[in-house]
């Protein structure tokens, strides 16, 4: 049976090193299978997050040969043969142990987003055409690969000012819901810092659900922010109306 050489990061928040493991390769095997083999036979204390092993839960994210991937969907035969396979944790989040990172920041950001709030008197009659667009955003499995590659977080550490692509997709899924009656534009501008995104599309490239994050979620949301806060005509109207009202 063929064998693969894996170089897996082992360590914790204080640092660590890559450790080599030899793993037998079976047809159709994915990187997560190799990590399970290591746990089962070579290093039972190797920390890995995973749940479904079917690409539906988004738990097993890691950087494989430098590319952020779901390890359950990364086939061994899609990687260069006769070269070691490196597996390291997501860089953007603090390491807890081995391949497991602390993603709790994401849950804090999610809490800031006002939940679905139906329009008063919503009829609950709406059509497939109304939902096609929104259903795309709701495919998100929260693997946080988009957060991991976003340079605003990865390179500039703007955790306090920025929400990240995952939560722009989340807001899009709520704001474009045909029955939702709340505007989250102010939140996008201020708390989630959507202006910091300069649409490099890195997030879209790594999305395992093929969500067009930049084109379908972020850009339309940026347009909403611009319309509401930076449209000169509207601004003048608001100034006048605001002055009258006070």
């Amino acid at each position: 049976m063929a064998e693969a050489l894996l170089k897996v990061f082992r360590g914790n928040k204080d640092g660590g090193q890559s450790v080599e493991f030899k793993v037998p390769v079976a047809p159709g095997m994915v990187v997560l299978d190799a990590l399970h083999y290591i746990q089962g036979h070579l290093a039972p204390d190797l920390a890995v997050r995973w749940n479904c092993k079917a690409g539906k839960c988004g738990s097993c994210s890691a950087e494989v040969n430098g590319r952020p991937r779901l390890t359950c969907k990364t086939r061994m035969d899609s990687l260069p043969q006769n070269e070691p396979i490196t597996v390291i944790p997501l860089k953007t989040f603090p390491v807890i142990k081995d391949l497991v990172t602390d993603v709790s920041w994401n849950y804090k950001v999610n809490k800031k987003i006002p939940p679905f709030t139906p329009k008063p008197g919503a009829s609950w009659k709406f059509y497939q055409d109304d939902v096609d667009r929104v259903q795309e955003f709701r495919k998100c499995i929260e693997c946080f690969l988009c957060q991991n590659v976003c340079h605003v977080l990865r390179d500039h550490d703007k955790y306090d000012q920025f929400g990240g692509p995952r939560f722009f997709v989340r807001v899009a899924g709520l704001d474009m819901h045909p029955m939702d009656g709340v505007s989250r534009t102010k939140l996008l501008k201020n708390d989630l810092g959507i202006g910091l995104c300069n649409i490099t599309k890195c997030c879209t490239e790594v999305c395992p659900e093929d969500i067009h994050i930049t084109d379908n979620a972020i850009i339309p949301l940026k347009e909403r922010v611009v319309d509401e806060f930076y449209d000169p005509v509207l601004w003048i109207v608001r100034e006048i109306r605001g002055a009258r009202e006070t």
Partner: peptide
């Protein structure tokens, strides 16, 4: 028996 510490240790969990 278990290798390693109690920190995120799948062998122990198992």
């Amino acid at each position: 028996s278990i290798e390693g510490s109690r920190m995120f240790n799948p062998g122990w969990h198992m």
